[in-house]
Design a binder for these strands. Sequence first.
DNA 1: ATGAGTGCAAAGGCTTTGCATTAGG
DNA 2: CCTAATGCAAAGCCTTTGCACTCAT
Lengths: 149, 149
Amino acid sequence: MGLDVHAIAASRLGAVGQRYTTSRRTVVDTLQEAGRPLTIPEILEDNPSLPQSSAYRTLAVLTQAGVVRRIVAVDEFARFELAEDLSSHHHHLLCTSCGLVADFELPSTLEVELESAFAAAASRHDFERVQHRVDLVGLCTACSVTAGS
Amino acid sequence: MGLDVHAIAASRLGAVGQRYTTSRRTVVDTLQEAGRPLTIPEILEDNPSLPQSSAYRTLAVLTQAGVVRRIVAVDEFARFELAEDLSSHHHHLLCTSCGLVADFELPSTLEVELESAFAAAASRHDFERVQHRVDLVGLCTACSVTAGS
DNA sequence: ATGAGTGCAAAGGCTTTGCATTAGG
DNA sequence: CCTAATGCAAAGCCTTTGCACTCAT
């Protein structure tokens, strides 16, 4: 798709009174190129000149502006990816052994069914502004070879 | 249901060479009574005489024995609930504001469809021993009143 | 009795923050 | 220019761990 991610990012940051600075642009680039959720250590690895504290602050701002999404996987590291409307709707495969996060998609017919079931559950429990989080938790190829009993 | 949770817990602990001690029993009771995932601070609140380190160690052992399940919500706190075969299959509603976790269920027909879609996705990505994690993330009643814009 | 389990306190590790400096609009 | 953003270092906070004591078998 031909979305201008940087233009959208600049606009969303502006909407919350934030500037689209060099380091923020860099982080967005890194996430877009990765195409999967990255931890902050991974982001720093790709950008050795970026200080750790700047990475944390940058990602906090980008998250707040709706440019990136923070996801909680199975290990102690937070992970970040571009917001879904800047990439595409997808789900995550989480490796319980190494923490790897990969993306996958569900048939759209199933997504539709899920959506209505979720809407019903949310309304039943008085939850609002609900998004769903559908993940698979298991062992990735590498780990099932290593740790597979 | 008439499951004897304590008997099962004792048996599962035994299977991994662990004893079913008083504090472990206490934690299991607390989780069963709560009927929703609890953080360690919440567990300690319910059991003021239980030291923090014992709570962490107890829950680590119970998790390893398959008596409880550790879940990652949206905040920094790990949460624990009884294993599904000691309670029932369900999903979670997560409040992004206060971190509250509530339970909900999906129609069993939808569960079946999901299961096969997940199996397909997992096999496509060479993931093994896959479990699913289907949660809704939003604002609980209390928080949507307070923080609802 | 005798090793597993517990309690206390200190250490670990990811993340946040204070403050002086730099850069964006 | 002038405020927001950055960089460095120190502090926070959840969690884990070392070690001596106690309880379960």
